[in-house]
Amino acid sequence: MNPDTPQPAQRGTGPTALEDDLQQRQRAVTALGDELRALGDAAVGAEAPTETLHLVAEAARRLTDQLATPRRLRASVPAIDDFATGRRFYNPVSGEGNPLAPPMRVETTADTVTGHCTLSLVHEGPPGYAHGGMSAMLLDELMGLVCLHSARPSMTVALTTRYLQPVPLDTPLRAQARITRTENRKTYVHGSIATETRPAQNLVEAEGVFVSPAPDSQRALFPHLPLL
């Protein structure tokens, strides 16, 4: 064989192979998250016989054992995440791999972040309606994202939530966040939740104060990450 003849690239090496592996893992994490969400929703809504519940619990225990090791460290960022852009697969609001997440689909414009999701029985507070803590969590996530996408990555220091009407389950929701003003390292944000069919009628509103950490504080909080 002529040594000058170009050889085909080896399978499983190079940037393309690494990208393929990452995408395959992201798809696998998303697929597992989807099934766990479906299982959670089925579990909290089940009126199955007691024996069936015991059988399903044992099957779930065996599956859990398959994921027992290895585990990532508490403060480590999963390789499939893009921390800088806010795409985090295990985020409890928008993470496709987190069984608690709705998950929320997020859209951004120049000054607004909009989230779309539907809450289910696993998020229930009063019968038929979402737990108030879920509304606060959805808004806190969006309000932090609008800071990030406005080049003001910040952490929540205050969040005041007003519950105007109950948030219904199994109903497409529309949540929004926008920056109202800035002051040095502080960012003031307004958030709201409505239904997709009645976007002008807010069910929940919130005002938040977010602060960009000083470099020393950021190093102490997130020593494993580059400065934002």
Rank of each mutant, 00 (worst) to 15 (best):
P199W: 14
A42R: 14
A158K: 15
H123R: 05
G40S: 12
E47Y: 11
G208A: 13
A214F: 12
A75M: 15
E124A: 04
R178P: 00
L18F: 03
R61A: 15
R11H: 11
R105L: 13
A59Y: 10
Q218S: 08
M155H: 08
Q66C: 13
Q24F: 14
G40C: 14
E96V: 07
R181I: 11
A42F: 14
F83A: 05
D170F: 13
R61W: 14
A57K: 11
V44Y: 07
E183C: 10
Q218A: 11
A136G: 03
R162Y: 11
D34E: 15
V113N: 00
H224W: 04
L32V: 12
D82G: 06
G132W: 15
V93W: 00
T108D: 08
E19S: 14
F222N: 01
L142V: 04
Y188T: 05
Q26W: 03
T13E: 06
P226N: 09
Q66F: 15
L159Y: 15
T108V: 15
I80Q: 01
A101M: 11
L67C: 01
L221W: 15
T197C: 02
T69E: 12
S135I: 07
Q66D: 12
V211Y: 11
L145W: 00
L67W: 08
A136S: 05
R185W: 08
P126S: 03
E58Y: 13
I179L: 08
L173V: 05
R174K: 09
V146F: 11
Y90K: 01
G133Q: 13
T5K: 09
P99G: 00
F222I: 00
L36Y: 12
R152H: 08
V77A: 02
K186N: 03
A110Y: 11
G45D: 07
Q201G: 02
T30W: 03
A206F: 06
N2T: 04
E96A: 14
R185Y: 07
R178T: 11
N91F: 15
S192W: 13
R62E: 12
E47N: 07
R87L: 08
E96T: 08
A46I: 07
P70Q: 04
T160H: 14
R152W: 08
Q23K: 04
A75T: 12
D21Y: 15
G86L: 03
E51R: 05
A220E: 11
D4G: 07
D140W: 06
E205F: 07
P215M: 11
V167Q: 01
R198L: 04
L138H: 07
P226V: 14
L67K: 01
D216W: 15
V44E: 03
G208V: 06
A220N: 06
S154A: 13
A194L: 07
V56A: 08
D4I: 10
G208H: 10
D34F: 15
P6D: 01
R72K: 11
V122A: 03
R72L: 14
A79F: 06
L39T: 02
V167H: 04
P3T: 04
T13C: 03
R181K: 15
V157N: 03
T16K: 13
V146C: 10
A57V: 06
E19R: 13
A43Q: 10
R198M: 05
E196Q: 10
D41R: 09
